[in-house]
């Protein structure tokens, strides 16, 4: 059945819309709305509310014989711990450039991937690293320390 527009009662009445146009527009409108809503849902999917990652808070037994200025790397961890006259501090050994693991040497650290160099207090001495190695939160004492890789502290904080 074809729809004929009805008689207008007054010149101020809007032009009546044919049924087919209305149905067509309704279909198009709901399709776009459904698509946009589902797109938002799909875009949220790749980022989980909680992401799986190993615990980054752990205890470390610092050897008594650790000489001043020599890095102690706990087995299986990307952390370097130093002890000097003022106390104990820990640096992350994840390069701030592109995430390789820096290697401790006599002067500080060196990154194998792109040659960034860091001093023993984490300051960049060489290469492309944009920022210093972060200082990590250390608590405890008497040889047993808790390292929290997720909490960074101000450079120079020693316990």
């Amino acid at each position: 059945m074809t729809t004929t527009p009805g008689e207008k009662q007054s010149r101020f009445d809007p032009e009546p819309m044919p049924r087919r146009d209305f149905l067509g527009l309704a279909a198009l409108g709901t399709m776009i709305a459904a698509f946009v809503v589902s797109l938002f849902g799909m875009l949220k999917l790749p980022k989980a509310a909680v992401s799986a990652s190993p615990s980054k808070k752990y205890k470390v037994l610092l050897p008594d014989a650790l000489p001043e200025g020599e890095a102690f790397i706990p087995p299986g961890r990307n952390v370097a711990i130093y002890r000097d006259g003022e106390g104990v501090y820990a640096l992350s050994t994840v390069c701030t450039h592109l995430g390789c693991i820096v290697k401790a040497n006599a002067k500080g650290f060196e990154c194998p991937c792109h040659g960034s160099g860091f001093a023993k207090d984490g300051v960049v001495t060489k290469g492309p690293a944009p920022t210093a190695l972060p200082w990590l939160k250390v608590t405890g004492g008497a040889g047993v320390y808790t390292i929290d890789e997720d909490s960074h502290v101000k450079a120079g904080t020693k316990v």
């Binding site: 299986g76 693991i101 194998p112 991937c113 792109h114 492309p128």
Partner: peptide, 21 residues
């Protein structure tokens, strides 16, 4: 725990890796 030294991307990305350095 131990990166390859040197850690190189596929060859067609090594130009990028050079300027990334």
């Amino acid at each position: 725990l131990v990166p390859e030294n040197p850690a190189k991307a596929p060859w067609y990305f090594l130009g990028l890796q050079e300027i990334v350095s």
